Amino acid sequence: MKKFMLFCLLFTFLTSCDYVLKKKEINTMVKIDSVPELGIAIEKDKNGCIKEAGYKWSIIKDNCIRISDEGYRLNPIDDLGNLEPSKSAYVLLNDDKLKAEVFLQDLPKSIYFSRKSKSEDFLKNNYKLSIQTGYTLSVNDSIIYRAAETAIKAVVGSDVEEK
C-alpha cells in the first residue's frame, strides 16, 4: 500500500510540474494561416499583369501599369468630348520623348514606336503618331484619334469666376 501511495504522490507531483512549466497562452483565438479559396479566377497575361484590374504590360515602363493613370488620353475623332474612357486610346512617352507606346482598346498589345529626332513623327506600319501640333493618331493617313478635350467644371459655387 505504501508503494501505491508513493506512486500516486509521484504521479501527482510530475503531472503538476508539467502543468506549471508549460507556457500558458493568454489568447485562446485560433489562428488561420490562409484564407480558403474563394473560387475567383484572376486572369493574368504572360507578363503577370492582372487584366481585370486594368493593368497592361508597358514596354517603355518595363512593368505592369494602368494606362488610364499614366497615359495621355486620346479620344476618337468623331467624339472628342467623350467622357467614356473605354473608347479612348492612351499614349505613353519615355523621358526623352523618342519612344512612344500607344494602347488601343481593340488591340491586345500596345503599338511601340521609336524615332531618331523630336522633329519627326512616330511611324509604325500604317500608324502615325504626331505630337508636334497636339496629339493625333492616324491610320493610313486618316486621323482616328485626337487629344481629349479638357473641361474645367466648377466644383462649388465659389469656383465660378465672376465677370
Rank of each mutant, 00 (worst) to 15 (best):
V91W: 01
D106A: 14
D121H: 13
L92V: 10
Q105M: 15
D78H: 13
E70D: 09
V102L: 02
N125W: 06
L80Q: 09
D106Y: 10
L107Y: 06
I131G: 03
E101G: 02
Y112R: 08
L137W: 01
L80G: 07
D106G: 14
G134A: 00
N126P: 07
P76I: 10
F103C: 14
K124I: 06
I131W: 02
Y135Q: 10
G71I: 01
F122S: 09
Q105G: 14
L107K: 11
G71V: 05
T136E: 00
F113S: 02
A100M: 10
N126L: 12
E101W: 01
L74T: 00
R73S: 03
R73Y: 00
R73W: 00
A89L: 03
Y135T: 13
D141E: 10
G134D: 02
K128P: 08
S130F: 01
S119Q: 14
E84L: 13
L93V: 05
K109A: 14
N125G: 09
F122T: 04
S117D: 10
Y72A: 13
D95Y: 06
E120D: 11
K128C: 10
N125Y: 04
G81C: 08
D96M: 00
K116A: 09
L123E: 10
S110D: 03
Y112V: 12
F113I: 01
Y90C: 00
K128G: 04
L80A: 08
F103D: 10
S86N: 12
F103R: 12
P108Y: 06
T133L: 14
L83T: 14
T133A: 15
V139Y: 14
Y90G: 00
A100Y: 03
G134V: 01
L92R: 06
T136Y: 00
Q132F: 06
Y90V: 00
L123C: 11
L98Q: 08
E70R: 12
Y112G: 06
L123R: 14
L98P: 04
S138C: 09
V91Y: 02
D79P: 06
Y90K: 03
E84C: 11
I131V: 10
S114T: 09
P108N: 14
P108I: 10
S138K: 08
A89D: 02
K124N: 13
L104E: 04
V91Q: 04
V139K: 15
G134W: 01
I131E: 05
R73H: 02
P85D: 04
D79K: 11
N126S: 13
K97L: 04
V91K: 07
R115E: 05
S86I: 11
K124R: 10
A89M: 00
K116P: 12
L123T: 12
K97A: 07
I111E: 05
A89K: 02
E120I: 06
S138Y: 02
N126G: 08
L123I: 11
Y112N: 11
G71R: 02
S138D: 05
L107I: 03
L137P: 07
S88M: 08
F122M: 07
